[in-house]
Design a protein around this nucleic acid. Structure first.
Length: 283
DNA sequence: ACCCAGGCGGGCG
DNA sequence: CGCCCGCATGGG
């Protein structure tokens, strides 16, 4: 059990994080089950967004607590972060509505695959495609009774044998060719686990060597795969919200939106983005 | 039928 | 460089 402040499991899950989480959230229990490496982890939350308890069960309970801490950024000082990003009534309202919503930190390779699939797509279908890839190509997770308890996300080398046609069969569409390249490139050329999470510029540059990873997807990977809060992914929702809220509804270029987000939220803009994103998608 | 979705790469001016 | 277009697929 972990005592948590400024935490909300529902908002976190519903804000499309991570895309690997499919229908594993239970509203009745306020709980979420997911696979991480060889572990199946279930977290259930009791309390309010201000103060509550997180209960963890797992077949690998020793490492599960640290995993949950990292995954849900439990060490973040949310009061400080809210203070820093609460620059105006727009972010302020989003914080009020989704208080406790966290960014998540996920496996870099898993995040890369998910966000390659995300382009020109919608959350529901992204999660469906990801789910199919896990079911078909993931590794079995064995519980303490020796039974198969689930599937873990396939490593890049596990996907080397998967053809463009196979990915098409999972529903990946025109992104299938990017996935074939990414599996090869991240196995043989770019070790995602050796990149420096803290060097935002260089990290993004290296991620964009992967075909199918451009400015926006690289920002998503930097943010949700490496936990770099300098990233400000600008998708259609965030672009729309920013233009409406900060540019009087005028169409702006991505570059201009990056510039204003840099100025407004500096090194915490990743959190501002997530609140604006979720607010735009739900209200 | 038509529009949209956590964009990107390639081609052209 | 910047701009524009096509792209697989399924749900509303």
């Amino acid at each position: 059990m972990i005592e948590v402040r400024e935490f909300d499991l529902k908002h976190t899950f519903e804000s499309a994080q991570p895309l690997t989480f499919y229908a594993d959230y239970s509203k009745e229990e306020n709980s979420l089950s997911y696979a991480s490496g060889g572990a199946i982890i279930k977290v259930s939350f009791k309390g309010t967004p201000q103060k509550g308890q997180l209960n963890i069960t797992s077949n690998d309970i020793l490492s599960a607590k640290a995993e949950v801490k990292k995954r849900f950024r439990l060490d973040d000082d949310m009061e400080k972060i809210y203070k820093r990003i609460n620059t105006d009534v727009h972010v302020g309202r989003a914080i009020d509505r989704y208080e406790g919503m966290r960014l998540t930190v996920n496996d870099p390779w898993e995040t890369t695959v998910c966000f390659i699939i995300s382009q020109f797509n919608n959350v529901k279908r992204i999660r469906l495609i990801v789910r199919k890839i896990i079911e078909r190509y993931g590794r079995d997770i064995i519980d303490n009774n020796g039974k198969v308890a689930g599937k873990s996300f396939p490593k890049s080398e596990d996907l080397l044998k998967v053809s463009e046609k196979n990915f098409l069969a999972c529903g990946a569409g025109f992104r299938a060719k990017y996935l074939v390249h990414a599996a090869d490139y991240c196995t043989n050329n770019l070790n995602l686990y050796k990149l420096n999470p803290n060097n935002y510029g260089k990290l993004k540059e290296e991620l964009m060597e992967i075909q199918g990873v451009g400015d926006k997807v690289a920002d998503c990977i930097a943010l949700m795969g490496y936990g770099n809060l300098n990233a400000f992914p600008i998708d259609v929702h965030v672009k729309r919200a920013m233009e409406r809220l900060y540019f009087n509804g005028e169409k702006k270029k991505i570059k201009e939106i990056h510039e204003i987000s840099d100025r407004m939220w500096d090194a915490y803009r990743g959190y501002a983005q997530q609140y604006l994103f979720h607010n735009e998608r739900t209200v």
